[in-house]
């Protein structure tokens, strides 16, 4: 099986919202992202990989939480290691461990985050209402965060991530806690966001990627394994590969090939 490099698979027309070259990022003492080359433009990019592949570390680096140890990382045309303020204004981020102020209402929480993102104060109320409606929390907008269920909290987290109409949206495990109907709605939201923004979704759920993403980024051991369309991912799998769906079989096939190749390299 041929491992496709990023440059070949990046859909044409991408504005290269994310460009990583030889990117290395530490997670504690471990080099969790270890020489990654990646180019991402407008669209929805599903970030797949096994546990410990470096997905969250990569997302955190893209979110400017972690600084690259080596290599270069450009976000929205600007170096991530410089002044990240410009990038952060256009960033939407949902961390894996999403924290929130329990005493705030949903509206207050999203308003507060909009202010932290330096949105114009005249735009904030409408943008907050829009974001809350998009995640289906309009009827709970004035309820306190601590009264929400896990799935609702996740949706509130997505609302704060998208309130500033970000050009780069980073969602780490966004569908955790969502029920099937909510996941379907969320995929629609992702597709909508991806029309104008670069959306990076880290997930274990391959079917989410298949349904909502325009591009799949498969990483393992901190490196890019494969990048391509969901259709190409599905095509990569065979009948004997592990998985209930074509995309899952493609995923396991690509990972297995990567593991074999690494073994051969050794």
């Amino acid at each position: 099986m041929r491992v496709v490099n990023a440059a070949e698979t990046a859909p044409t027309g991408y504005a290269e919202a994310v460009t990583a070259t030889g990117l290395k990022v530490r997670a504690g003492r471990r080099m969790a992202v270890d020489g990654l080359d990646l180019a991402l433009g407008t669209g929805v990019h599903g970030l797949l990989g096994p546990n410990g592949a470096g997905k969250t570390t990569l997302i955190r680096a893209l979110a400017t939480v972690l600084r690259p140890a080596e290599g270069s990382l450009d976000l929205l045309g600007l170096p991530a290691t410089g002044n990240p303020r410009e990038v952060r204004r256009k960033l939407g981020y949902l961390p894996q461990d999403f924290g929130f102020y329990p005493r705030f209402t949903v509206r207050e929480f999203v308003t507060y985050l909009a202010w932290l993102k330096e949105m114009s104060k005249v735009d904030i109320p409408a943008a907050v209402q829009r974001a809350i409606e998009k995640v289906g929390l309009a009827d709970r907008a004035d309820d306190r965060m601590k009264t929400l269920s896990g799935g609702m909290l996740r949706r509130a987290g997505i609302a704060q991530a998208i309130v500033n109409s970000p050009e780069l949206v980073l969602l780490d495990e966004p569908t955790v806690g969502l029920d099937p109907a909510q996941r379907v709605e969320f995929r629609g939201l992702l597709r909508e966001l991806g029309e104008h923004s670069c959306v990076v979704v880290s997930t274990h759920l391959v079917e989410d990627v298949a349904a909502a993403c325009t591009d799949v980024v498969l990483i393992a051991s901190g490196r890019l394994v494969w990048q391509g369309t969901p259709a190409a991912l599905a095509a990569a799998g065979g009948a004997d590969d592990v998985g209930d769906s074509p995309t899952e079989r493609g995923y396991s096939a690509l990972l297995a090939a990567h593991t074999d190749r690494r073994g051969a390299d050794w």
Binding site: R60, A63, T64, V65, P84, R85, E86, R88, R89, L91, Y93, P95, D97, F98, G99, F100, Y101, P102, L113, W115, L116, K117, E118, Q160
Partner: peptide
């Protein structure tokens, strides 16, 4: 509240 991660990524100084 576990908000340090999120607030670390906002642009406001």
């Amino acid at each position: 509240s576990g908000m340090t991660e999120l607030t670390a990524t906002v642009s406001r100084p």
